[in-house]
């Protein structure tokens, strides 16, 4: 039969349709001196609903670029990325992004920043006061109710990032994209936020795609870890299922010999031995 439109995986009804399906994407950037620089090599990934996926890799391997392509902020040179069957060709509110540095509008308070994300919804049917209480709800979720009226400049780095997380959750997106969300924080705040994020993602059942270079963060949070090789034309070299049951506990995890083993394996594959 000659069909122009076929649902993906129509032939295998047993396999659930992935939320995000990445097929054969590559990406490079033009460089004035060196010509075209390929960054991301052929990459295929299927991400199932409710999965927490972490892409980990050495710096410069293009892991952030992959996330940007999923977010629709960059387009792939080849291949396709689909969200629930539909190709992603532009940014969408179904993809909530948490950026590496906080991207809070400095002239707005924390509450206004979350509210801005809610108000800009073209399909919004809720009243202003409903949106306001919704914004407060999401700030409460990240324990920031007391700081809702502060401007970003009056918040610590960890608090700024929590506002960003609250804003992304407030969109109620199909997929949350986290681009090294804790990368710019000091060690103590980072650890604290990792635990908070763990709690949040177990509580708010969503699909997460995170990019990080922190092995412990990846092991603590993810169901699956994709390890990227070194560039140019970096590819996914390992696809590891993380076997720990949820809800997770840092202390149990730290004593688990399987965790040590995985940690060692990840560190080795990242440093290229």
């Amino acid at each position: 039969m000659s069909q122009t439109i076929t649902a993906p995986h129509a032939a295998e009804p047993t396999a659930p349709e992935p939320v995000v399906k990445i097929e054969g994407i590559t990406k490079g950037f033009p460089d004035r001196k060196k010509g075209f620089q390929p960054i991301v090599g052929l990459t295929d990934v299927d991400i199932q609903e409710g999965e927490f996926i972490t892409i980990i890799g050495p710096s410069g391997c293009g892991k952030s670029t992959i996330l940007k392509m999923i977010a629709g902020l960059e387009s792939a040179d080849e291949g396709s990325i689909r969200l629930a069957g539909k190709p992603i060709d532009a940014p969408s509110r179904e993809l909530g992004i948490v950026f590496q540095q906080h991207v809070l509008l400095p002239w707005m308070s924390a509450r206004q920043n979350v509210l801005f994300a809610l108000e800009t919804d073209p399909h919004n049917t809720r009243s202003k006061s409903q949106l306001e209480s919704l914004a407060d709800e999401y700030l409460e979720l990240v324990n920031l109710s007391h700081a809702a009226d502060r401007r970003p400049a009056q918040l610590s780095g960890g608090m700024q990032q929590r506002v960003g997380i609250a804003r992304a959750f407030a969109l109620e997106p199909k997929v949350m994209l986290l681009d090294e969300p804790l990368g710019a924080l000091d060690a103590l705040t980072r650890h604290e936020l990792q635990l908070q994020l763990l709690e949040l993602c177990e509580q708010q059942k969503r699909t997460f795609i995170m990019v990080t270079h922190d092995v412990d963060e990846a092991l603590l949070l993810s169901d699956r870890i994709l390890v990227m090789g070194t560039g140019p034309r970096a590819q996914i070299v390992h696809d590891i299922a993380v076997p720990f049951s949820r809800p997770r506990d840092v202390e149990n995890l730290e004593q688990d010999p399987k965790c040590h083993e995985l940690r060692g394996f990840l560190l080795n594959s990242l440093t290229g031995h």
Binding site: G72, A90, F99, T120, D121
Partner: peptide, 24 residues
């Protein structure tokens, strides 16, 4: 990144200019 944010929120041009670009 402010413009990336505005795009990811699917804001229209008017909102993007008046609420993000102009204040910034």
């Amino acid at each position: 990144l402010f413009l990336d944010l505005a795009r990811s929120l699917e804001t229209d041009t008017k909102t993007r200019v008046l609420k993000v670009l102009l204040p910034a």
